[in-house]
Amino acid sequence: MINSNWWKYLGAVLVLYSIIGGLLFVNPNNLLFLDETVRNLNFHVPMWFTMIALLFISVVNSMKYLKTFDLKYDIIASKCAAVAVLFGLMGLATGSVWARFSWGSWWTADAKLNGAAIGELLYLAYLILRNSIDEPSKKARLSSVYSIFAFPLFLVFAWIYPKMITNSMHPGSGDTVGFNQYPLNNNLRMTFYPAVIGWICMGWWMSTLLIRNEFLRLNKQKNEN
């Protein structure tokens, strides 16, 4: 997967398709009170799907590291987490804009919003923890253990807890059902699923660039010694 190219082009084409289709296709007229902003579903939500997918790859590689103590797994885990944090920040920013024009405020004390923000901080802490340790194997071991605790906590804060509480304004949390519970015009689905797959491919592509760069750096250090 890391050496082939087809999925990179697939990701780019799917995202481009979702941009064009997401803006042009006829969408359900005024779902809830969203008017045309329902189109944000094609852009805001895939950010979170991509973040969770990359964090999943990250935690799997952290486990692999603890099993083999091969530094390459630690590199994969950390770079995936770094790109995931970027996607999370974009998810927070886009969500904030969408909230301003549907709920009237940039930020509300909603379980979903605060949970996502806490999850984001969990992984920012992961990156800071890594950068504060110089010795490579110690850095890898500590951050791998941290990552194994952080991933379930992230899911609980950003996904499970907002579903358990009784009231939330965010779709798919508390008493507000997700968009898939409404009789949707299928055009929304026609762009949403490709957008999710496309953005996950793009996120993984961005991660592999960082991973390969880090591998090169390690190789260079090895050659020099």
Binding site: N5, K8, A12, V15, L16, I19, I20, L23, L24, W205, M206, L209
Partner: peptide, 19 residues
């Protein structure tokens, strides 16, 4: 739509050259 598509295509081309 055309403007956004051009920007996105530009970013993808940049990623390809990096790759």
């Amino acid at each position: 739509v055309t403007v956004i598509s051009i920007i996105f295509t530009g970013i993808v081309v940049y990623l390809i050259t990096l790759d």
